[in-house]
Simulated scan of single mutants.
Amino acid sequence: MSEAKKLITRWSRDFQGNLQEDPNGSWVLAADAAIRDKRLMDKIDQLQQRLTAADERADRLEQALKFYADGDHLLLADPDAWDTCSGEPVNFLHDDAGTASVEDGSIAKAALKPAGGDGDEK
């Protein structure tokens, strides 16, 4: 048995088996390893909470975009009174009286398209 192994064996006996090897190959007291493991688990929990919050926010933003993309924001009493206007982007509708304009949801539809996709995926 090498001198290092003899020393580790003696230390393990002296510390009543509380000496253990960590993933880096170092020898630490079990209590220190437990503290490190607890800190690691706490960090993992914090990151998971942040990821969950980000996922929930992304879901809410997607719902808001879908509201516009589906045209649910357009409450047109007379849809025939709205049309595109020469010189303006085709996604902007203007009323016949020239008093109002609204975007038709095309921007939200474009934002909802998967990256690299053609937008037909559901």
Rank of each mutant, 00 (worst) to 15 (best):
M1H: 06
S2N: 15
S2V: 09
S2L: 11
E3A: 11
L7G: 01
L7D: 02
I8C: 01
T9M: 09
T9C: 01
R10M: 05
R10G: 01
W11V: 13
W11S: 07
S12P: 05
S12W: 03
R13A: 13
D14F: 10
F15W: 09
F15M: 08
Q16K: 07
G17N: 09
N18P: 03
L19C: 00
L19R: 00
E21D: 00
D22P: 14
D22H: 07
G25K: 04
G25S: 02
V28D: 00
L29W: 12
L29G: 09
A31N: 04
A31W: 05
A33Q: 08
A33L: 11
I35V: 15
I35M: 02
R36F: 03
R36M: 05
D37G: 01
D37Q: 13
K38I: 00
K38H: 08
K38Q: 09
K38L: 00
R39M: 02
R39I: 01
L40C: 03
D42H: 01
D42T: 04
I44E: 11
I44M: 08
D45F: 14
D45L: 15
L47A: 03
L47H: 02
Q48D: 06
Q48K: 15
Q49P: 02
R50V: 07
R50P: 00
T52W: 07
A53S: 06
E56G: 03
R57E: 05
R57C: 09
R57H: 08
A58E: 10
D59F: 11
D59M: 10
D59R: 15
R60P: 00
L61P: 00
K66R: 15
K66G: 12
K66E: 13
F67V: 02
D70L: 14
D70C: 07
G71Q: 09
G71V: 05
G71C: 06
L74G: 05
A77L: 11
A77E: 11
P79L: 05
P79G: 06
D80S: 13
W82H: 08
W82V: 10
D83Y: 01
D83E: 01
T84N: 08
C85Q: 14
C85N: 06
S86F: 08
E88W: 03
V90Y: 02
N91L: 09
N91R: 11
H94V: 15
D95G: 02
D95W: 06
D96S: 11
D96T: 12
A97K: 15
A97M: 03
A97G: 06
A97W: 04
T99Y: 06
T99A: 12
A100Q: 12
S101F: 10
G105P: 05
G105E: 03
S106W: 06
I107G: 05
A110K: 06
A110T: 07
A110Y: 01
A111E: 02
K113L: 09
P114G: 14
P114S: 13
A115E: 01
A115W: 04
A115R: 05
G116I: 14
G116R: 10
G116C: 05
G117M: 05
D118T: 02
D118W: 11
E121H: 12
E121V: 12
E121R: 14
K122V: 15
